[in-house]
Amino acid sequence: MILVTGGAGYIGSHVCIALLDAGLDVVAVDNLSNSNKASLDRVQSICGRSLVFRLADIRDEETICEILRAFGVTAVIHLAGLKAVGDSNVRPMTYYENNVLGTMRLVSAMKRANVKTLVFSSSATVYGIPRYLPLDEKHPLDPTNPYGRTKLVIEEMLKDLCRSNDGWRICNLRYFNPVGAHESGLVGEDPLGVPSNLLPFVAQVAIGRREKLRIWGNDYDTPDGTGIRDFIHVIDLASGHLSALRQLRQPGLLTVNLGTGNGYSVLDVVRTFEAASGRSIPYEIGERRAGDVAVCYADPTFAKDALGWTSTRSLQQMCEDHWRWQLQNPNGYHGSKLPTVRERSRHLRRHG
């Protein structure tokens, strides 16, 4: 049994699909502060298999320990946490409490339950302003915002835990920019309030929920003046977690980038999404945001060497899959219904 914290969230729901499709049993834990349990109902419909859901907060050590013991959990994939860079600048202590303290209590519960295999959701924000490109795992670590600093503190904490020679098997996965949705259109990103990430905002403009996109700066030293990022399909990202889990056979610590190695500008994304959706994306140019960098993309070489993992999906597919999700779910999971028996059969045939 694999415990997935934050299992009802955007990345968590796709990780649950990857695990269930691989024949693994899953218990998903989520406090639903920024997610919707409907995602897990759809996960089970897609996979044709059941998972266990428990409403719980990772800061509740006793409850997490009880769950670990009750279901005979053998490994944890830890995705729970607050993740908005801008919000972290406004509420830094809330981020430290949720992300750092939450992880401390999760690890303490794992130790009590004798569960010592952990895949941790870290972030490329730990690198800060790139000193060279592409970013490999040896790049200096200097995050520029509280969110990134919480990820770095947790990484250092887990490094010290492994050095304690206590038999821990841990993998830190440094995500770049997850986008896209499950190809069925049933599971995708459903941010609460105004999206803080580019693609869901673009999709909401395309569907008519937002009037226009604001692009933060067009005077960067890039071909079209807008920032360049490494966008990775969430399905590829989810498969990286499965690869990491399979690789953790011996005690120790692995730290791995999950990115494509390709950089796309904001305007590249806008144009590709327009082509995928057949909709125009109006936008306006705003001032640069503090802390944003011009260019950031991964060196994914070590992921292939250490995990046998590579990304396979293009920006076009990322946009097509995200648009399918948005088109079928214009208001996200709000008021959503489970697919019909016919729809479920179609998805089972597709993925079976």
Rank of each mutant, 00 (worst) to 15 (best):
M1S: 09
T5Q: 05
G6Q: 09
G7L: 14
D21Q: 14
V26K: 02
V27I: 09
D30F: 01
S33T: 15
N34W: 09
S35Q: 03
N36S: 11
K37H: 09
V43I: 12
S45Q: 03
I46T: 04
G48T: 14
R49N: 00
S50L: 07
A56T: 02
E62F: 05
E62I: 06
C65Q: 11
E66H: 06
R69D: 11
A70G: 03
G72V: 14
H78W: 07
G81W: 09
L82V: 03
Y96L: 14
N99K: 05
R105L: 06
L106Q: 03
S108A: 08
M110C: 08
L118P: 02
I129A: 14
R131L: 15
P134F: 06
L135Q: 12
K138D: 13
G148H: 03
R149G: 04
T150G: 01
I154A: 04
L158E: 04
D160P: 01
L161G: 01
W168P: 13
L173H: 11
N177I: 06
P178L: 00
P178G: 04
G180E: 04
H182K: 01
L186C: 08
G188Q: 02
P191M: 01
P191L: 08
P200A: 11
Q204L: 14
Q204P: 09
I207H: 06
R210P: 03
K212P: 00
R214K: 08
G217R: 12
D219S: 13
D221H: 06
I228P: 10
F231E: 13
I235S: 13
D236E: 14
L237H: 02
A238D: 07
A238E: 06
S243A: 15
S243F: 12
P251T: 04
P251V: 00
P251D: 02
L253A: 03
L254M: 10
N257K: 01
L258Q: 01
L258K: 00
N262S: 15
Y264W: 15
L267S: 10
R271S: 12
A276L: 02
A276H: 12
S277D: 03
G278P: 12
R279F: 11
R279C: 13
S280I: 14
Y283R: 02
G286L: 06
E287I: 07
G291S: 10
D292H: 05
V295F: 06
V295M: 05
D299N: 15
K304A: 14
A306W: 00
W309D: 06
S314V: 04
R324I: 12
Q328L: 13
N329K: 13
N329Y: 15
N331I: 07
G332R: 00
Y333W: 09
L338S: 04
G352F: 07
